[in-house]
């Protein structure tokens, strides 16, 4: 038997766990609980994934349930669609965000609307695991943020965990759901270890989580930017400014109520994401705050984002990704408005 650092049966106790291990543990739980669950993609089987996320799964569950595919993203998702139509519960992986583009036709034209097209006859219980976002100084196509693209497509759910516990819980929810979910794993946080309990999800699909409470402004983020916002809030506290940090977790559907409630407490909102500014998900968050918490706002919603350029080569990442200084400057603009 393969041993892993985080057996699912230790879920009740807090264990030092990385996000890699948490996703691995969730996949083990899911493969064990439902024989219809299948894990496949490029290098996920024999190699155990380029990020080690599927390490040991093929040895434990066999190569009929955990298997390697050709290097053909459109075929991977097409396979998932066909399997789902025949009663399977596929969990395909596309190795890197930028390689989801070749599969967009299958994702948008088939996976997202098959349930609708068949008037409910063909549910699509597919969870597309997509290692996402930047922060590891990788080459082109390995640092993209596609959440706005997929959130825009009717029929898809989109989520992005920010820590190991949520990575575990969100993946259980995503795979158990009968709708297609884009599950975006923040690569830059794979190696971050935290003492967490891996257990059943404690929040419903679509719920956000307040990871830090504050009264002067709300920072809204997801994925790796949650950690960046926590760092900014820590520094702001040294100056006597109390920032709330809201981890959206679900990017489709967005927790409008949670968002409005937080802004109602703080009166200011700064949304932070890695994707380019124009038509990014920050615009959606800004619109929702304006529609649902307008009366509470003391300043226009600020956006701190990547730039409207292709994601840059590794050495330029620190200039592209939102920094604590850029976040604090945006906060200052809301404070001084």
């Amino acid at each position: 038997m393969t041993e892993l650092a985080v057996p699912a049966d230790q879920a009740a106790t807090a264990t030092e766990t990385s996000m890699q291990q948490a996703v691995n543990a969730a996949l083990r739980t899911l493969l064990a609980e439902d024989p219809a669950t299948l894990v496949f993609g490029e290098d996920v089987g024999r190699l155990g994934g380029v990020f080690r996320v599927t390490d040991g799964l093929q040895a434990e569950f066999g190569d009929r349930r955990v298997f390697d595919t050709p290097l053909a993203e459109s075929a991977i998702i097409g396979l998932a669609v066909g399997l789902a139509m025949n009663g399977w519960r596929p969990v395909p992986e596309l190795q890197f965000d930028g390689f989801a583009y070749p599969a967009v036709d299958q994702i948008v034209n088939q996976m997202a609307r098959m349930h609708y097209r068949t008037r409910g006859a063909a549910p699509m219980p597919i969870t597309l695991r997509l290692p996402s976002f930047g922060g590891i100084q990788a080459p082109e196509h390995h640092g993209e943020s596609l959440e706005a693209l997929f959130a825009h497509v009717p029929g898809l759910k989109v989520c992005a965990p920010s820590d190991p516990a949520d990575a575990y819980g969100l993946l259980l929810q995503s795979v158990r759901a009968d709708d297609p979910v884009i599950y975006m794993e923040p690569k830059a946080r794979y190696w971050n270890r935290r003492a967490v309990r891996l257990g059943e999800p404690d929040l419903p699909i679509g719920a956000s989580r307040t990871v830090r409470e504050g009264r002067h402004a709300t920072l809204v983020a997801w994925g790796a930017m949650v950690h960046r916002c926590e760092q900014a809030a820590e520094l702001a506290a040294e100056d006597g400014v109390e920032l709330e940090v809201l981890d959206l977790r679900w990017l489709k559907p967005i927790d409008t109520d949670g968002l409005a409630a937080s802004v109602a407490r703080t009166g200011r909102a700064v949304v932070v994401h890695e994707a380019p500014l124009t038509a990014g998900l920050g615009a959606e968050v800004s619109a929702l705050v304006t529609e649902h918490a307008f009366a509470s706002l003391r300043a226009p919603v600020q956006r701190v984002t990547g730039f409207d350029v292709p994601y840059p080569a590794g050495p330029l990442e620190p200039q592209y990704l939102p920094t604590v200084d850029r976040i604090l400057l945006a906060v200052q603009r809301t404070l001084e408005f």
Partner: peptide, 17 residues
């Protein structure tokens, strides 16, 4: 591809009022 990010406390220049 890529490198494992280092866990460093960020430096800053911006101070808030």
């Amino acid at each position: 591809v890529g490198t494992v990010p280092t866990e460093e406390k960020p430096t800053r220049r911006v101070r808030l009022r």
